[in-house]
């Protein structure tokens, strides 16, 4: 009781007045209660469960092969070595190339960046036009576009190969960029359309009365209000395209394989000794980009998804 008393006031008086004025709000809870132990205990177990594979991977990648062979996969390395990382990045062989994952990394970058930019640019303009500049048949157009997202990719693989061959870009990076841009279109258009439909229509009308046209309204009114949804789209596309394996295998050739395909080729090579430490390092390297994107923009991601969900 005396703890709550104001400094300088007599203890006897303060205990009475503290009861009158001091206690407000909910009763404070003890930190260590059975309930909290249950909650935090469960959370801890789940965290460990999810973090353990990552732990094993990183620990293994820091060990030399002799130590890996001992089989203590959970133990930290006795002797830390970065050799597996160097090898995974710059020396591991896939087929005839022995320049490691670095080639795949740059391929993936050259695929992902243009694909993300092109698909988001077009999809956002699609969504904007579908909501604000309705044209005859715009609803049918949208329905067809959405229907496209329900067709399994496998069905479209071979027709796509023919299409790219006829265009003369089969087996090139441009071809793969085109494929990624097209396949991202339905879901991204839906995303942008729903977001733009949640923006007040009167803003668009006001801008038209103010004499702004299609592009000016898009760039000066819509874009600045849509940062969260652009972040969402960027995350979706970066991770989706970076992690893509199927299209990478089908539409490119060995020198142009993206990182995921190359990782598979390194890990699954049947010749020689299985270098688990190199495989682990290569896997972590490949996962770093999506991981980085999530960490940097996770908060914006949630905000964007929520904004679309509530109002759309």
């Amino acid at each position: 009781m005396s703890d709550t008393a104001l400094p300088g006031s007599a203890a006897g008086v303060s205990s009475a007045s503290a009861e009158m004025t001091g206690a407000r709000g909910a009763k404070p809870q003890r930190r260590i209660s059975p309930r909290n132990i249950m909650i935090y205990g469960t959370l801890f177990v789940v965290c460990v469960y999810y973090a353990l594979p990552l732990w094993v991977m990183i620990m293994t990648s820091l060990k030399g092969m002799p130590e890996v062979r001992l089989g203590n996969i959970f133990a930290p390395p006795m002797e830390v070595t970065f050799q597996p990382w160097v090898k995974a990045w710059a020396e591991a062989c896939t087929g005839l190339n022995c320049d490691g994952l670095s080639r795949g990394f740059w391929n993936s970058a050259r695929i992902t960046i243009p694909s993300v930019v092109v698909s988001i640019l077009i999809a956002s303009i699609n969504g904007y036009a579908l909501i604000n500049w309705k044209f005859k048949g715009s609803d049918i157009f949208f329905t067809i576009l959405i229907f496209g997202s329900f067709i399994p990719y496998q069905v479209m693989l071979y027709p796509m190969v023919i299409l790219l061959r006829e265009l003369g870009i089969y087996g090139t990076l441009q071809g793969l960029v085109l494929v990624h841009s097209i396949f991202g279109m339905p879901i991204l258009t839906l995303l942008f359309r729903n977001y733009f439909s949640s923006l007040p229509e009167e803003l668009f009308k006001a801008a038209r009365v103010d004499g702004a046209g299609f592009w000016r309204i898009y760039f000066q009114i819509m874009l600045p209000m849509s940062i969260p949804i652009f972040v969402v789209a960027i995350i979706l596309q970066v991770t989706g395209i970076w992690n893509d394996f199927l299209f990478g295998v089908v539409f490119t050739k060995p020198e142009l394989y993206p990182m995921t395909v190359q990782l598979n080729n390194i890990v699954n090579s049947v010749q020689g000794v299985k270098e688990y430490n190199v495989n682990m390092a290569a896997t972590v390297l490949t996962g770093l980009v999506p991981l980085f994107v999530y960490f940097v923009s996770g908060r914006l991601f949630v905000r964007g998804i929520a904004a679309g969900a509530v109002k759309g």
Partner: peptide, 14 residues
């Protein structure tokens, strides 16, 4: 040659 005022104000927020 018109000016318009909307119910939701429709001010450009940015």
């Amino acid at each position: 040659g018109i000016g318009m005022v909307f119910q939701s104000y429709a001010l450009y927020p940015q």
